[in-house]
């Protein structure tokens, strides 16, 4: 058991904790953090597993850098969407707003309906 392998196992733990959070938590920002936790776990596992022999391997490190940028882009986009969603609907989860369904559909509900 080399120290690198320890990182890989830490990655395993992070992935499963993140998975639990991602599925169970309904608040969108926390869900997003759970996604980032899984992501960190995957990156840790990728680097740790590849350099288990003790010798550093630059390729997975570069892959992880690419992966981090992709994850940041996705996270940032998700935050913008979530903030905007909260701004419009006042909701922090994806549950359908039941109270609002009783009213006649708002003009925005079927935007395709209006001839453009």
């Amino acid at each position: 058991m080399t120290p690198s392998l320890l990182y890989a196992f830490a990655g395993v733990a992070l992935c499963s904790i993140g998975l639990f959070g991602f599925v169970r938590i309904r608040h969108l920002l926390r869900k997003l953090m759970a996604f980032n936790l899984i992501g960190s776990g995957v990156f840790l596992l990728m680097v740790g597993l590849a350099q288990r022999g003790g010798q550093p391997d630059p390729v997975p490190q570069a892959l992880v850098l690419t992966g981090i940028v992709v994850a940041i882009a996705a996270t940032a986009l998700a935050v913008v969407l979530i903030r905007r969603y909260y701004h419009l609907s006042g909701q922090t989860t994806l549950a359908e707003p039941r109270a609002k369904r009783a009213k006649p559909p708002a003009p925005t509900a079927n935007r395709e309906g209006s001839p453009e």
């Binding site: 892959l63 690419t66 996705a74």
Partner: peptide
């Protein structure tokens, strides 16, 4: 690492910046 990112696997990096630009556009 820079060699991998910007030379050997530069196509990955190109697409990765594309992903970032997409996020920016959608934002």
């Amino acid at each position: 690492i820079t060699a991998v990112l910007l030379n050997f696997r530069s196509y990955d990096t190109l697409l990765e910046i594309g992903v970032l630009v997409i996020a920016g556009i959608a934002g």
